[in-house]
Design a protein around this nucleic acid. Sequence first.
DNA 1: GGCGGCAAACTTGCCTGACAACTTGCCAAC
DNA 2: GTTGGCAAGTTGTCAGGCAAGTTTGCCGCC
Lengths: 245, 245
Amino acid sequence: MSTDEPDDKSIPRSARGSGRRLRGAVAHYLGSAIVSGQIAPGETLTGEIANAEALDVSRSAYREAVQVLTAKGLVESRPKAGTRVLPRSRWNILDPQVLAWAFSAEPDVSFVRDLFELRAIVEPAAARLAAERRDKDDLKAMKDALAKMRRHTLATEAGRAADRAFHDALLGATHNSAMMALSASISAAVSWTTEFKQRSRALPRDPVPDHAKVFDAIAAGDPDAASAAMRALVDLALDDTRSAM
Amino acid sequence: MSTDEPDDKSIPRSARGSGRRLRGAVAHYLGSAIVSGQIAPGETLTGEIANAEALDVSRSAYREAVQVLTAKGLVESRPKAGTRVLPRSRWNILDPQVLAWAFSAEPDVSFVRDLFELRAIVEPAAARLAAERRDKDDLKAMKDALAKMRRHTLATEAGRAADRAFHDALLGATHNSAMMALSASISAAVSWTTEFKQRSRALPRDPVPDHAKVFDAIAAGDPDAASAAMRALVDLALDDTRSAM
DNA sequence: GGCGGCAAACTTGCCTGACAACTTGCCAAC
DNA sequence: GTTGGCAAGTTGTCAGGCAAGTTTGCCGCC
């Protein structure tokens, strides 16, 4: 892309054009490096002036990027001690952006397993709640998403967006704000893994029938059936993902 | 500059001494104002130079605070348009810090209900996993926390810390990183609500027996019993909290 | 010889002032 | 009425400097 500057590691400048501001690019660069393990927990990264200069940005831009990482629990900085990477246990890995950084590199297998495990716990329970509380608008949103899934397949970005929309609508039908916050994280993760599945080989299974079963149970107001149908859906998705890795 | 200024709203300077850096105080101030609804979603807050001056901090400190809010999905800022508060659906309310801001003011009743609902879903499932996977260290950590809970009551901060430690150890025993990330959020929320219960009136119930039952089931490696015991514990906690509000 | 306090040095924290980049909304021309 | 460009205002980035706080090591005291 950029014809001008084949500098050592000053990538951010070229990534600036992608809508992200400059500090966003720096945050992405550092965040990915940390989450992917290139900078191990406990390590303290080089001083602000040196590091900012190495990345060819001003100290303020660099500092604002570090603030973002601090806000997400990736690093902690104290005077004289420097900025050091915190242990994984303090990271907000449920943060959608951190999740994106985690999947921007080769996703860790055990981490994907953990995410699916969480999904297998939360989504069936959410489907149960949704069956009890859904209103007309919720059903309409889910129905529309389902129709879009039918039209496009999961091979297209539009299809994956429809998949996300379906799960978002489902979580939204619980009318539980905490659940909806998890929705953002989980649907993001699901989207990444779906794309990953897609990349590895053609999807062997048509996902629409499973989703339709969940929808029918929720529309019928049958909590047990909704929970069971969603459990089946997640299990199948886990199988597909597992066989793709 | 100004040594003594009982200015209208320049609170941050006084809050700086509390360990938090100055930008942390500004972030706390703005974050609380947003989460508590004083600044409604969709509103655009005043320009950086004006607002920074009103709070009696430099523009850089103010900007770094805003970056923190941006990282947590509370606001979004674009040139010329200003910085505007995003709709609640985009907030990372599972972020421990956002949770803290939410509880720093009068906590919203329906929000607390939502949190307990999530807890009622996640923690029994986590107890089930913990019963299957716990190792010696996990059991030791839980046992220690339980002993501390017995020694101090929930009326003391040490007791509440022990309660947090018990739940953290339990979530940790699942050996699931995503679950452990939720642990930070949930235990924080539980701690806030416990303190809230405490504030309203003396706790009518001794929490130790319930916790001990969960521990015994996990130590025995009985997933079903662990799940059931945890479900009972959360239900009781919900009852207490509900009657206190 | 060990221990405690003190000081210096280094890193982040904060400040100031200025300019560049980017929207947005107005306004004019077609 | 639509479309194009222009201008103004806000955030974004930059540079340099000083202050505050911590860690480290030295020095004196016990």
